[in-house]
Design a protein around this nucleic acid. Structure first.
Length: 361
DNA sequence: AACGCGAGCAACCGCTCCTCC
DNA sequence: GGGAGGAGCGGTTGCTCGCGT
C-alpha cells in the first residue's frame, strides 16, 4: 500500500510567494522544524505544493542565508569547487553554507560562466577549457585539440588536472573556515559573511526586508503612520518584531524595520502559545518555560536541518545525503592526509594554482 | 515617453535516489 | 522484495527591472 500523494495538483498556487505565505511557512517550521514537507500545505493552509514549500524554505527563508553580491573569496571557491565537483550545486553549496545551491547555480550561469568564457577567448583557457567541456557534456568540442595529444600526454594532463583539482579543494578548504581547518585565513576573507555560526536573525532580516519592500509597494502601506513600524494583518495569530508589539491574539504582525527587527525576532503561535525570541547573538528564549540557549547553525560541510520541540529547543539534524556527504568527507581526508605528505611540493604548486586563479580575474 | 533588449533571479519541472509500506 | 511516494537535485523557464536607443 502506497502513501497518499504529496499534494493535490489542483488548487495549488504557483508563482512568487507573498510575505504572508512566507511568515506562515516560517512560523510553522519554527514550531515543527523542517521536514515532513508533505504535511506542510495541509497543516498551514498554504495553497502550495510541498515541493514549493521546501524550495522556498531552503532557498530563501532558512536561517543563515546570505543574499547579495558574492565576494571574490566566494567566487574563487565556487570556481574551484565547480572544477572539482562539476555542476553538483548542492555539494558546492555545502561548502558555502550561507549560499543556496540555487543561488550558486544562478551565479555560475549568469556571472562566472561569462567570466570564464571571456578569459577563454583571451587565451587563458587551458584548464578552464576542459572543465567547461566536461561540465557542458561537450565531448566533441575539444576533439581537435585532443586528437593532437598522445595517450601519454593525455594521461599526464589528466594527472595534472587531478592534482590541480586537489589543490583547488585544498585551497577551498583552507580559505573557508571549516571546522577541521587549522589554517589562518586572511582577515579580509574572514568577513562577517562567513562566520562559524549563524543566527536566526538573518532569516528575520530576510523577512523584514521582504515585508519592507512589500509594504513599500503595497497601496495599503498608508496605514502605517511610522516609517519604522509596519503592520501586516494575518490570518493566523503570529507576531514578529519588537517586544512592544501589539497583542498576538489580534492576528497582527508587527515588523520593526531596521535595528529593531535586526535585533529581535519573535513569533507567537496560536497553537501552543509558545513564544521564542531570538536576539542578535543567536540567543533564544521562551518566556513560558525559561528555556534559553544558543541557536546556532554549524557551518560545514553539510547543511544542518533543524527541529524545534515544543519547548523551543532547536535540534540539529544532519542531512542524510550519502551522495554528497560521504564522498566529500573522504575527499577531505584524502586531501588532508596527502597534504601532509606533500607539503613542500604543494607549497610550490599552490602558488601556481593561485596565480592561475588570479589570472581569471 | 515608449519600446526593445539583456541580465538577474525566483520558481517550476522533471528526473533520480531513498525510504516506507 | 517490490512498488509507490517523498525528498533532493540540476536544468530550465519566465518574470521583473534596468539600461540603451
Amino acid at each position: 500500500m502506497g502513501r497518499p500523494p504529496c499534494c493535490e495538483k489542483t488548487g495549488v498556487k504557483k508563482g512568487p510567494w507573498t510575505p504572508e505565505e512566507d511568515i506562515i511557512l516560517v512560523s510553522y517550521i519554527q514550531e515543527h522544524g523542517p521536514g515532513n514537507w508533505r504535511n506542510v500545505p495541509s497543516n498551514t493552509g498554504l495553497l502550495r505544493c510541498s515541493k514549493s514549500c521546501r524550495l522556498r524554505w531552503t532557498n530563501y527563508l532558512r536561517p543563515g542565508i546570505k543574499r547579495g553580491n558574492f565576494t571574490e573569496h566566494e567566487e574563487k571557491m565556487i570556481i574551484h569547487l565547480q572544477a572539482l565537483l562539476g555542476n553538483r550545486w548542492a555539494a558546492i553549496a555545502s561548502y558555502l553554507p550561507q549560499r543556496t545551491d540555487n543561488d550558486i547555480k544562478n551565479y555560475w550561469n549568469t556571472h562566472l560562466k561569462k567570466k570564464l568564457n571571456s578569459k577563454k577567448v583571451e587565451g587563458h583557457d587551458d584548464g578552464i577549457h576542459d572543465e567547461k567541456n566536461q561540465q557542458e557534456g561537450n565531448s566533441t568540442s575539444s576533439s581537435s585539440s585532443q586528437s593532437k595529444i598522445s595517450k601519454g600526454q593525455w594521461e599526464r594532463r589528466l594527472q595534472t588536472d587531478i592534482h590541480t583539482a586537489k589543490q583547488a579543494l585544498c585551497e577551498a578548504l583552507s580559505l573557508d573556515s571549516a571546522p577541521n581547518n587549522k589554517n589562518n585565513p586572511t582577515p579580509e576573507e574572514q568577513q562577517p559573511a562567513v562566520p562559524t555560526s549563524t543566527t536566526y536573525a538573518s532569516s528575520a532580516e530576510n523577512i523584514a526586508k521582504l515585508l519592507q519592500n512589500w509594504m513599500k509597494n503595497s497601496p495599503k502601506s498608508s496605514s502605517s503612520n511610522s516609517s519604522k513600524i509596519t503592520q501586516v494583518s494575518l490570518n493566523n495569530n503570529l507576531s514578529m518584531g519588537a517586544a512592544s508589539s501589539s497583542s498576538p491574539s489580534e492576528g497582527t504582525v508587527n515588523v520593526t524595520a531596521g535595528q529593531g527587527l535586526d535585533s529581535l525576532f519573535s513569533f507567537n503561535s496560536s497553537n501552543n502559545n509558545s513564544e521564542v525570541s531570538v536576539d542578535e547573538g543567536g540567543n533564544f528564549s521562551t518566556p513560558e518555560n525559561n528555556n534559553a540557549g544558543i541557536f546556532q547553525v554549524e557551518s560545514k560541510p553539510i547543511l544542518p536541518d533543524f527541529k524545534a520541540d515544543n519547548n523551543g529547543n532547536f535540534q540539529e539534524e544532519r542531512k542524510q545525503n550519502v551522495d554528497t556527504q560521504v564522498p566529500l568527507t573522504l575527499l577531505e581526508k584524502w586531501l588532508l592526509d596527502d597534504a601532509n605528505a606533500q607539503a613542500e611540493q604543494e607549497d610550490h604548486l599552490m602558488g601556481i594554482a593561485l596565480s592561475e586563479t588570479a589570472d581569471l580575474f
